[in-house]
Design a protein around this nucleic acid. Structure first.
Lengths: 349, 349
DNA sequence: CTGAAAGCGCTTACAG
DNA sequence: CTGAAAGCGCTTACAG
């Protein structure tokens, strides 16, 4: 880079006013073909790059970038969705000088997702960040947003939709494969393996399934004959804590055991193990839930996989803003790394 | 936040000109005590926050933020130091609109560090980013920079210095503890453990020592009697590949074995194991060196710990810039998380 | 189709 | 000690 070239230099070189240069830069009408081409040539030659800061400075005051965030309502004692929200708020703070306005909307199920999505689309909004828990309703939102030329960015979960869409989420299939690797390292080839799907009536289970598939794939690829038992417990009807006859049968086996919990509820496992009086069990779960971290510190859980929810929220806002202000969509599809947490590195997170 | 308050609003409320408000905001002389206090009160009341973007816009053109980066010269086939450099360049690109100028300086040993440091200090520079490989010379640089009121930020390694200093680095002691946890999970309590310090004449070994200490501490805390053998190999005099008598003795033992390599040279281990015809060995090493990654994919290395060198470089520039332009030092001390890499999550990095 | 002016919020000379 | 003006690089009305 020599001296930075600005709109003023371009104008001088093209012997036009900066207004005309601006029109060309923004593909606005009202410029003769010849001047437009002349200016475009000079832009190319000089390698002009817009100063995004100067550009935002005046726009910031006139029209902010307006982003709607439609996420699950934070409910239980541990509200997973408080965490991405924290990241979102941090990003908004960072971008405040550049003019940004984020409005939150909340859903609890498919119906409220649908009605809130409708509300969002009625508003004057530049972009939408949401979570694709419900396939049909997500498709509907995506289609309508497309009509309004409003981009949609999905967080947390990836599902197959009718139109191509942007996703910032961890690859749950890969996360399951990592879990397989970790558990196999602890339990060995002679062990017994369990996948615990500890679900509730209200939760979404797309990630759970993908994680389970990845886990099984790991064993299928590397150790063909490993037995894997799938256990599904509905936690909302009080399951998980009492004696489970199916489990009892398996737990009598003396071989070392490995349990993979496909969501954040691995902190329930120690109680189950206690009820069944089994030991020699290794556990891998998800998410840095406070109770999970406590189990990790007590050596009751051995690995946790972090989806970096705060980072997901933060980067969603930054990426959407970058897209809306600089027309740069390169950060709208992000694979969150599968982060492995043990007792000795958990305090840094 | 109501409507954002600007310097203009403050001026109007205080019945002064914006110039005077500016003088107060920057603690510049030439304002009477009474007006200064009046303005300060209004600033407090209104919760005024400077618009960093507007502020940088004109400064960017007049005087850029000048940062000197003094790092080891990239030498061997795999140049570790190319990686933080990549992060640095990314950050510079991102901040280019705000006016930043980074100049690189390189050292190969204590002498060139000293002479380059002297060169850096002679230049008109706002901040220094460097690596504290040499204690005495680092102290000297830190002291002289302090006299010039130039902040110094150290990357990669932490050592005890005479003055308090800023560090962005992974806690190597914690990294060693994590390595202990990982290796113990694979090898178990009945295993034999080895620490391999594969050094060269030119390399720095501060991180190696801290990692070894953390590793031993893990076992000391959790499993008092575990035997750990320390092996030091000088790779620059051709060590590491032939038969090593000390090792031969240990490797005859039939117990499962775990090897912790305290730096990036774990890719040499498979060759050593082959020479000694030992199997049933688990290996944990550092850094996503291409050869290490290949061993990871071949199941010859089981875990790698990533120091995130690119992120270190990126965040060093961002943090230094934030400090220099907004007087915010909060990001100048960062603990890089101990990132655990296995075969199944290495492609994301 | 094109230009000239005003302004984004702040900073820097310069004038009094 | 204080104010008024010019400017950072770009955008937006408005005038012709």
């Amino acid at each position: 880079m020599n001296e930075l070239i600005g709109i003023k230099q371009i104008a001088k070189l093209a012997k036009v006013s900066i207004g005309t240069v601006d029109r060309v830069l923004h593909d606005r009408p009202g410029v003769s073909k010849t001047t437009r081409e002349k200016i475009l040539a000079i832009i190319k030659e000089t390698g002009y790059k817009k100063n995004a800061v100067a550009s935002r400075l005046n726009l910031a005051a006139r029209k902010k970038v307006k982003i709607a965030v439609l996420i699950p309502e934070a409910t239980s004692n541990w509200s997973y969705w408080e965490v991405p929200k924290k990241g979102i708020d941090d990003a908004v703070e960072e971008l405040s000088d550049l003019g940004i306005l984020v409005t939150y909307f909340y859903f609890t199920g498919p119906d409220s997702f649908e009605s809130q999505a409708k509300l969002v689309l009625e508003k004057d909004i530049d972009g939408i960040i949401t979570v694709p828990f419900f396939k049909e309703e997500s498709n509907c939102l995506l289609g309508n947003a497309k009509k309004n030329k409003v981009p949609v960015l999905f967080l947390d979960t990836e599902i197959q939709l009718d139109d191509p869409a942007y996703f910032i989420r961890q690859n749950s299939y890969d996360a399951g494969r990592v879990a397989g690797r970790l558990l196999h390292g602890l339990v060995g080839e002679e062990g017994l393996y369990f996948v615990f799907n500890i679900i509730t009536d209200r939760g979404m289970h797309v990630n759970n399934e993908q994680r389970e598939n990845g886990f099984r794939e790991f064993f299928k690829t590397n150790f063909k004959e490993t037995p894997i038992t799938i256990i599904t417990i509905n936690h909302s009807i009080g399951g998980a804590l009492g004696i489970n006859e199916e489990l009892e049968k398996w737990f009598k086996d003396k071989r070392p055991k490995g349990i993979f919990v496909t969501n954040a509820r691995s902190y329930l496992i120690p109680k189950i193990l206690e009820a069944h009086k089994v030991s020699n069990v290794s556990v891998v779960g998800f998410d840095l839930h406070k109770d999970n971290l406590e189990c990790l510190r007590n050596n009751e859980i051995h690995f946790l996989i972090n989806q970096k929810p705060e980072f997901q929220g933060y980067t969603a806002i930054k990426s959407m803003f970058k897209y809306l202000t600089e027309d740069d969509s390169s950060d709208l599809n992000i694979d969150i790394p599968v982060e492995i947490i043990v007792k000795e590195n958990c305090q840094a997170f």
